[in-house]
Write a protein that binds this DNA or RNA. Structure first.
Lengths: 202, 202
DNA sequence: ACAAGCGCTGAACATCTGTTCAATACTCTG
DNA sequence: CAGAGTATTGAACAGATGTTCAGCGCTTGT
């Protein structure tokens, strides 16, 4: 872990903004608060990032880079990376809700990667066939992101800091259990919904 | 559907606040904007709700009532109810992120109901056994809520308004497919995570 | 009919917001 | 060492924000 005082003022401001934006939301965070957290004047924030909007974009870019630089990590590992980097996770959740361009791009990108990953697994035989591959990929990604977005709620009920590895793993394991053996032992819900689906989407 | 002009000013303000809070976030919404949407003066908002915080609490209460009054609906139906009531859904997502007391209570309540529901299903034989019932319930609920919270993103990629029934059903069906037949055809991921879990939680 | 009370408003308030600007300290390059 | 350029600041401004308050019109119980 790098110590805060080692960073340039610019980086300190960006980190402070990331944390504040994630905790209080973007609209709920004032430039002055970010500046105070970083130990600089409000004017410096504007000097470096042009405006509050510019600061938000810098956060977007930083988060995108942080996640993309994970690069070759598997989708599952990506979950762990996010879990470890709590401020980034919080910020990402806000950005996803605020429908930031970066968040939009990121979500689409993850879905694409996932769809390809699942398709490969399907050919290799360790992923089951699906009636609607796209919908499955989207749903799977939203499930993957859910504990991150709802981290506070999930963590509280699982009795631990959601950033703590143990808690995260516990949730992930429960999820994998459902994804491997299934949750429901028979088709009652699935057939019901398949009927509805075919009726509303002919 | 009730028409807006039939409602009392108080109700109109509450509805406007619900919509605005959900779309722009609570911090990002001004009392003046809510008042304008409701066609009243800012002073009236304060007159009825005391303060902006009071208005937010009124929204919390309203959402809680709306969902609870669903009462005997199954958990799955609850998803549809939420999907139909878009403003409430959006507001709920924000509240969940902002960690509102009401949202906190609601999440815990849904998890409790779900855990009981799954336990019953387990005894009746249509739900599989789990190694960690609590974690499974929490994860399942977070999955159920995920498309609601990430509705914008999911909806865009599934090519339709996420509030539209067809889109929602399509996602739900894909989810049920995974929950019934499973996603993974073998144990490779599950055993890997079970190992990690046992190592980090001895 | 009349007072009481409620719904509702416009104008005003102090405060906080994002942003600007001139000026100072600092750090390199020549 | 001189000077250019960058980092940084305090003070200031215009606008937005949450909230207050005296007063208006309207219903309603007596």
């Amino acid at each position: 872990m790098r110590s805060a005082s080692d960073l340039t003022a610019r980086a300190r401001v960006r980190d402070a903004a990331l944390a504040r934006f994630g905790t209080d939301g973007i609209a709920g965070t004032s430039v002055r608060a970010v500046a105070a957290d970083a130990g600089v004047s409000p004017a410096l924030v504007v000097h470096h990032f042009g405006s509050k909007e510019g600061l938000r974009q810098a956060c977007d870019d930083y988060v995108l880079d942080s996640i993309r630089s994970g690069g070759e990590t598997s989708i599952e590992a990506l979950g762990e990376v996010l879990q470890a980097a709590t401020p980034i996770r919080r910020y990402l959740a806000r950005a996803l809700l605020d429908d930031t361009p970066a968040a939009r791009a990121l979500f689409a990108e993850i879905v694409d990667r996932t769809e390809a990953w699942l398709a490969a697994g399907e050919q290799e035989g360790w992923v089951r066939a699906s009636a609607d591959a796209k919908a499955r990929a989207v749903t799977y990604v939203s499930w993957l992101l859910a504990p991150l977005v709802l981290g506070d709620q999930v963590g509280r009920l699982l009795g631990g800091d959601p950033a703590e590895t143990a808690t995260a793993v516990r949730g992930a394991r429960a999820g994998l259990e459902m994804l491997t053996h299934g949750l429901f032992a028979d088709d009652r819900w699935l057939t019901a919904f398949t009927d509805i689906d075919e009726r509303t989407r002919p």
